[in-house]
């Protein structure tokens, strides 16, 4: 109950005032939402865009529409290529790779 109250306050005061997001299906003021729902609302806010928009974005930042397959290795990451893109498996948000500045 305590966490529900806190979440409700958070949702109504903070999310409601966050003009920089496009938050879909905001809960009415006072509605209690779960942590999972709250998390999903943040993440859903980033759900726009299409695969074509994404490919267009890559084409433009990697050298323009005229060179859509330019290798990203030109930017210092040898071996990384725009060829044959495929879906990635679930990426763990808990970062347990090796840390360090190089």
């Amino acid at each position: 109950m305590r966490s529900s109250v806190t979440l409700a306050l958070f949702a109504t005061t903070v999310l409601g005032a966050c003009a920089s997001f496009t938050v879909h299906d905001d809960p009415p003021v006072g509605q209690v939402v779960s942590a999972a729902q709250l998390s999903a609302r943040f993440l859903t806010a980033s759900g726009g865009g299409s695969e074509e928009e994404s490919r267009s974005y890559y084409r433009r930042i990697l050298g323009g529409e005229s060179r859509p397959t330019r290798s990203i290795s030109r930017r210092g990451r040898p071996g990384l290529s725009e060829q044959n893109p495929r879906p990635a498996p679930f990426i763990e948000m808990r970062m347990n790779s090796v840390f360090g500045a190089t």
């Binding site: 998390s39 999903a40 993440l43 695969e51 994404s54 490919r55 890559y58 990203i72 071996g79 990384l80 290529s81 725009e82 060829q83 044959n84 893109p85 495929r86 879906p87 990635a88 498996p89 679930f90 990426i91 948000m93």
Partner: peptide
């Protein structure tokens, strides 16, 4: 992605 290929979509949630 896993192979180093540029990918347009990522499943982060």
């Amino acid at each position: 992605g896993t192979t180093g290929a540029l990918i347009p979509n990522v499943p982060l949630d």
